[in-house]
Each structure stands twice: as structure tokens, then as C-alpha cells.
Design a protein around this nucleic acid. Sequence first.
DNA 1: CTAGCAATGTACGAACTAGTAAGTTAACAT
DNA 2: ATGTTAACTTACTAGTTCGTACATTGCTAG
Lengths: 221, 221
Amino acid sequence: MSSQPVARTTGDRQRDAQRTKAEILAVAQAEFARRGYAGARVDEIAALIRTTKRMIYYYFGGKEQLYVAVLEKAYREVRAAERTVDVEHLAPVEAIRTLAELTFDHHDAHQDFIKLVSIENIHHAEHLRKSKVLANLGTPVLDLISRILAAGQASGDFVTEVDAIDVHMMIGAFCFFRVANQHTFGALFGRDLTVPEHKARHRKMVGEMIVAYLRGAGDTP
Amino acid sequence: MSSQPVARTTGDRQRDAQRTKAEILAVAQAEFARRGYAGARVDEIAALIRTTKRMIYYYFGGKEQLYVAVLEKAYREVRAAERTVDVEHLAPVEAIRTLAELTFDHHDAHQDFIKLVSIENIHHAEHLRKSKVLANLGTPVLDLISRILAAGQASGDFVTEVDAIDVHMMIGAFCFFRVANQHTFGALFGRDLTVPEHKARHRKMVGEMIVAYLRGAGDTP
DNA sequence: CTAGCAATGTACGAACTAGTAAGTTAACAT
DNA sequence: ATGTTAACTTACTAGTTCGTACATTGCTAG
């Protein structure tokens, strides 16, 4: 009955729209992250794939739409990863500490995404704003933080009055910075943030930082 | 005796090398911060000044050297500002809190600089590394932090064992993030980080965060 | 087996962009 | 006063870069 073409599972076809599209997206993501929006070259992206530049225009329409598609894919993957986080079985202090450490790991593992976000901010998030997909993506982690904060306040572990967005920002800022600014930081302070000792120490630091802050230890007496 | 042309103080000369150079640098800084290195256009920079594109090549040699000159100028100004910070008359807790708040103010006041740093990181700090000026610029704030930490440990106010660079990074990460990522953050969380309420709250947050962390409140019991 | 169309390749052009050759003028030293 | 040179302008080019017109071929339904 179905008139839809059945998606074949064998991957060795010469013509495969989905594979071509996916390949373009993957290469484009690396290229945009590496060179920025203006610095990326459509011809260079085309040269790095099986197919030709024509396909980029066939499937995406143009450089800008390709860039938006890359952004959308990257954000979708991040949000999907966020949804797999499960720390609600932990006590509030351990829950927020673990969330901070998982956020740290996640940023460390997705450096291309960090770069894309940096690039998008240089452009005042104009592409992100254009995308309807990204507007309706939601931020599951915020609800999680809200619940942890409520539990921590109820138990008395957390004293500081703060909302979930600010907590998310405080954790994210630290995790983002050490990836996004590793090169200038390394050059200016002579410290390579990628070496395991620093990484492990910083991972601990985020957790301790957010717990100390939520316990209210920074208050003026 | 002197064969050097005396620098005239009247600013109304038609030809003034220093003024032209300074004007090019100022416009270029704005343009590079706005569009990124690849996105900035030499013709556009030229169009925004009194003089012509030829002068950019006359004084700086090319687009890349102009960019490096902009970077050098921006970093020099930042380091100069750092040297004016005086918090050593304060007790350790107040000293580090004040330093954090001043860092916050400084980042907030120099958003173009933040953007240039983001851009430079996208390019793996390759230009920054090339510059001999920037290699020998030093980081006066690190010594300051070291002294505050030593005083705090001596007085018993600070318990956490941490070095100055990590403290600088923790403060800087927060201050940097809210400026650098304001656009994607605003679009995704519906929160405009530039509105005074948020800004004032975040300014307090940095101070409380670093004090709480240094007091060792995040330690596992 | 074949018609029809999605998918793909080739070749090219219009517009842009960094950089330069060659000539001109203002300001200063003497 | 005037020669010299730094400061400046104009007009141009060679190369790049996004995008497209047009031709072609593999895949699948029936």
C-alpha cells in the first residue's frame, strides 16, 4: 500500500540522498567550526566530500542555510544528550555536583559545538534566531536544576537564593571558557588546559564551586 | 640640533600620521570585533575613515598585520587597566571579592575586546602567538591574586588549595561568558543579560562564588 | 523493461576582495 | 623661498568565491 520508497539498509548505493546530506553536514560542521562562517569556503567543503558543490545547493540552498542546518543539528544533539542525564536519585549536593561534572565532560567532548556557539555569538545569534527548529527546542536541563534546587532548599543543604538559569550559567561559563578560550589562555598563561592534570582538577573545581556557592558560603557575614 | 620632526600638539593638521594610524586602528577594531577576521573587509574599514584603503597598507602592510596591531592595542589597554587595580589594603575576603567585581566591570565595559578574544580563539590564537609584543606583556593580576591567596591562607579565611591561575580563570570564565555568549544565551533562555537587574545580580554572584569556593565550602565532608 | 524523476556532475560567470603601481601634495628643514 | 620627503589619492588588477545553467545518469515503480 505504502507508496513511500523504503529506506534501504544497505549503505553501498551510489546514490543516497540521506547519506550525501549527512556527509555534507558533517564536513560543513568541521569547516565552519574551524574557520568561522565567513572564513569557511563552500568550495573547500565540497572538496572534502565524495560529491560536488552542486549538491550543497541542491540540498541546502546556499552557504547560509547550510550553516543554519549545521547549527540545528549540533544543538539537537546537545539537547538529546542533556535528556539522558539522570541524577535525581542522588541527594541534592551530589546531584548538582554530578550535573556540573557531566556538563564539564560534555563540553570537553564537543569542542566543535563550543566553537559554533562562539561563532554564532560573534554574529549576534542572528542565524540561531532565524531558525524555527531552535526556537522550540526547549532546555530540559533547566527543569532538572530547578528540582535539585528545590530539594536542596527543602533539605537545608542549599541556602543561597538563586534561580535555575543562573546556576546553569555559572556551571556553563566555567565549562565553556576552558574549552573556548584554551588557545589565548594557553598562549598568555603558558598553561595547556588540555593536559589531563589540569582537566581533572578543573572538573573537580566546577563541582566544588557550585556546591560552595549554593551552600551560601560566599555571603557577607 | 634635533632633526626629529617635533610632534605638534595642534590636532587640526591635514596630514597627521599618528592620527591617521590611530583612526585606522579604532575603526578596524570595531570592524574585526563585529565581523570576525575573515568577515571584516579592508574596503569597509577604509570607507569608514577620513582616508583611503591605501593608507592601511602604507601603515600596517596588510589585513593580517592590521588585525595583529588591533589585538596588541586591545591587550595593552587591558593590561594597563589591570595595573590600576588596588585592593591590597583590603582584608583577603574583601580583596578577592572586590577584584572579582572589578573584573566583572572591566569585561562589561570592554565588549569589543571580549569579541576579539573569542575571534582569536577560533583561529587557535595563531596571531597572538606571532606577536612579540603580546608575548612579553605579562599578567600583573596574577601576582595580585597570589598575594591575596597567601594572605587569606595565613589568616585562615581561605581553606581551598588552589593556584592563582585557576582563581583567575574561575573569575574570568563567569565574567567572560555573560558578555561573549549573551546572544545565544538570550535567544535560548529568553533572558537579556544586559538588563541592569541581571547585571547587578551577576556582579554580586561572581564575588560570592569565588569567596565561597576559597572558603572551602564545596569540599566533600 | 522502461518511463520518469531524483540525484549528480561539469563548466562557467558575475561580483567581490586583497593588494599595488604610479602619481600628487602638504609640511618641514634650511 | 624651496628642495626633500613623508603622507596621501586614484585607479587599477589578479585571484577568489558564491552561486547557477545545463547536461547526465542511476534508481525504482509498475
